[in-house]
């Protein structure tokens, strides 16, 4: 394979995170650069050597693209997320250098300049350990989806909770019914055995209702907590975020 084709193929694959039309535009620049160079009597090796390392060029393209608008605290620039399939590489060494040496040009530039011509070895690259950030559009869609889901789900949960509160109130009332009977006797001085039996059965029902309350409240609490947790994870992104 010829040096020129090798260079261009490598560059194209390194530029994969860019949107196709931008990538094609840049590729066109480099293709014509080769043609001009060859016209001026240079060899493909010379031209490729002058251009530098395709990987460094791609890094530069990614940095320049997200460029000055999104310089973050560390002086590094946000990577471009064109699709989720590929994790963009970030030259952390260069990013740090940009932060330190920053001054008038904080982090807008990356390490394309550290190519062979400067006689420096290319910096080590690690994938950014941070969780990936999502684009604003994805975030808005997630928020809208959750909003409509919650319009339904929150009232449903509230209805379930009020049912539990109702059962609990029934239980408490049942258990307290003998006390009510006692107060009744105190006030009126009369006692009907029917009332006594009724209050006994009410107290029994009340105890059963309270047991039911305890079970259902526990289950519903778990359900609500899980649902809230799921909401938060959905907003943070991809359910991959650490929790629990």
């Amino acid at each position: 394979m010829k040096t020129k084709d090798q260079f261009l193929v490598r560059l194209e694959s390194e530029l994969a995170p860019l949107p196709p039309e931008e990538r094609e535009e840049l590729m066109e620049d480099y293709r014509s650069h080769f043609m001009f160079g060859l016209q001026n009597g240079k060899t493909e090796e010379e031209i490729a050597g002058e251009l530098g390392d395709p990987r460094e060029i791609a890094q530069e393209a990614l940095h320049q693209r997200s460029g000055s608008s999104t310089v973050n605290a560390g002086g590094a620039t946000d990577p471009v997320f064109w699709y989720y399939g590929q994790e963009p590489r970030i030259d952390s060494a260069a990013a740090q250098g940009g932060g330190k040496g920053g001054g008038a040009y904080p982090g807008t530039y990356s390490s394309a300049y550290s190519g062979a011509n400067f006689g420096t070895s290319p910096g080590s690259r690690h994938p950014e350990p941070e969780a990936r950030r999502r684009s604003a559009a994805v975030w808005v869609c997630a928020a809208a989806g959750l909003f409509f889901l919650n319009i339904v789900m929150i009232p449903v949960l509230l209805a379930l909770w009020s049912a539990v509160i109702g059962i609990a109130a029934g239980g408490v009332g049942g258990v307290l019914s003998p006390v009510a009977l006692l107060l009744d006797y105190w006030n009126t001085g009369t006692y009907f055995p029917a009332k006594g039996f009724a209050s006994m059965s009410l107290a029994g029902c009340g105890i059963l209702l309270l047991i039911l309350t305890k079970l259902s409240a526990g289950a519903l609490y778990k359900l609500s907590a899980n649902y809230a947790g799921w909401n938060i994870r959905a907003m943070r992104g991809r359910g991959r975020a650490k929790h629990d």
């Binding site: 840049l26 620049d29 014509s32 650069h33 002058e50 530098g52 393209a61 940095h63 693209r65 190519g115």
Partner: peptide, 24 residues
């Protein structure tokens, strides 16, 4: 582009490839 690359590298040693993203 090519002209710029030649003119710049006449005076300073630089990886010319960096020029195109910069121009963009």
């Amino acid at each position: 582009g090519y002209e710029l690359a030649q003119l710049v590298s006449e005076h300073i040693e630089v990886a010319e490839g960096a020029l195109y993203p910069l121009l963009r």
